[in-house]
C-alpha cells in the first residue's frame, strides 16, 4: 500500500529527512514514533502529496504523490496535525462540503453515527470541544471511504476519554482492513495501536519492527519486584546467570532484573513459600518503547 525508499528532504542546508525507508501493508496500522522535530510530519506530508521531497522513491497505492497528486488525494484519507475549519460551519455542513470533492462518498449521516457526532451535527465548529473537533477531523478523513488513512498526531492534546474514543476508532479501521499510517509521540498509543512501529530521531528511522520485536532488541530486562510481610533469608536463591537480584535493607523486598521473568517468578515464589513468609505484593514491569528509545538515543522521548 505504501512504499518509501531512501526518502530525503532538505530545507535549505538543513536535512529534515535522511534515507527514510519503510513499507506499510494492507490492513496494517503502522506507527511513526518520535519526539517533536524527528521528521514524522514531514514524512507523512510527503506521502499525502502536500510537501515535495528532495530525493528518494515514494509510492502510495501505486501513485507517486509528487506527480499524481490529484488522483492520490481522491483515494486517501488525511487527518492533519495542525488544521482548522471555518468557525461558523456546522458539523454536518462540513461533511457534506468535503464529500463533494471526492469521486467516492460516504453518507454524512453514517459518519456522524460512526464518530458519535450525531447530537453535534447542527453545532458550529467553533463550539466543539477539542475531542469533538478531532472526531470531526477524522470523519472528514473518512468521507471518501479511503483504504489508506494518514493520521498525524490524532490524539495530541486530548483528554484520556477523548483519546480512548479515537483509539477505538483506529482499531475499528484496522478491523475493516484499512491501512493506517499514524504518527505519535505517545508511547502507550504506539504500543496499543500499532502492528509495526518505526522509531524516528533526527530525520532518520533508528529502529523498525513490531513493538514486541523492538522491546526484544533492547538490552532492557523485565523488572520483577516481590514484597513480603516478613524478612526473607539473606541467602538468595540461584536463578539464571543473566538475572540480577537485590534485596532491600529490611529484607522485605526482592528485586530481580530478568530475561525470563516468568521462570524467575515461579522460582522466587517457591523460595519464599519454603520460608513460610506471606507475599504482600508482586510487580512486574516489562521494557517499553520508551526504554527502547532511551537505549537507542540516550534520551527520553519527551525531552
Amino acid at each position: 500500500m505504501i512504499s518509501v525508499e531512501k526518502l530525503v528532504k532538505n530545507y535549505g542546508s538543513f536535512r529534515a529527512l535522511q534515507d527514510v525507508s519503510f513499507e506499510v501493508q494492507k490492513g496494517e496500522v503502522f506507527g511513526l514514533l518520535g519526539p517533536n522535530g524527528a521528521g514524522k510530519t514531514t514524512t507523512v506530508e510527503i506521502l499525502e502529496g502536500i510537501r515535495d521531497r528532495t530525493s528518494g522513491q515514494v509510492s502510495v497505492l501505486g501513485y507517486d504523490p509528487a506527480r499524481q497528486n490529484s488522483e492520490l488525494k481522491d483515494l486517501i484519507g488525511v487527518s492533519l496535525q495542525a488544521t482548522n475549519l471555518p468557525p461558523k460551519i456546522r458539523v454536518k455542513e462540513a461533511l457534506a462540503l468535503f464529500s463533494c470533492f471526492y469521486s467516492q462518498r460516504v453518507s454524512p449521516s453514517l459518519l456522524l453515527r460512526q464518530l458519535q457526532l450525531e447530537d453535534k451535527q447542527h453545532s458550529f465548529f467553533e463550539t466543539l470541544s477539542g475531542g469533538q473537533k478531532q472526531r470531526l477531523t477524522l470523519a472528514l478523513a473518512l468521507v471518501n471511504n479511503p483504504q489508506i488513512l494518514f493520521l498525524d498526531e490524532p490524539t495530541a492534546g486530548l483528554d484520556p476519554q477523548a483519546r480512548q474514543m479515537i483509539h477505538g476508532l483506529i482499531e475499528q479501521l484496522r478491523d475493516e482492513s484499512r491501512s493506517v499510517l499514524l504518527t505519535t509521540h505517545y508511547i502507550e498509543e504506539a504500543e496499543k495501536l500499532c502492528d509495526r512501529v518505526a522509531i524516528m530521531e533526527g530525520g532518520k528511522i533508528i529502529a523498525i519492527g513490531t513493538p514486541q520485536e523492538l522491546r526484544r532488541k533492547t538490552l532492557g530486562q523485565t523488572l520483577l519486584r516481590i514484597s513480603c510481610t516478613g524478612p526473607m533469608s539473606a541467602k538468595l536463591p540461584a536463578l539464571s546467570e543473566k538475572d540480577f537480584m537485590t534485596l532491600s535493607a529490611d529484607r522485605r523486598l526482592i528485586s530481580v532484573q530478568s530475561d525470563q521473568p516468568t521462570k524467575s517468578l515461579v522460582q522466587l515464589v517457591r523460595w519464599i513459600d519454603n520460608q513460610k513468609i506471606d507475599i504482600s505484593h508482586i510487580d512486574m514491569k516489562s521494557p517499553t518503547l520508551e526504554d527502547v528509545f532511551i537505549e537507542l538515543t540516550g534520551r527520553s522521548l519527551r525531552e
Partner: peptide, 11 residues
C-alpha cells in the same frame, strides 16, 4: 488560521 490546509489535502 490553517483552514486552507484542510482543503489542500482534498482533491
Amino acid at each position: 488560521n490553517q483552514i486552507l490546509r484542510r482543503f489542500k489535502v482534498a482533491p
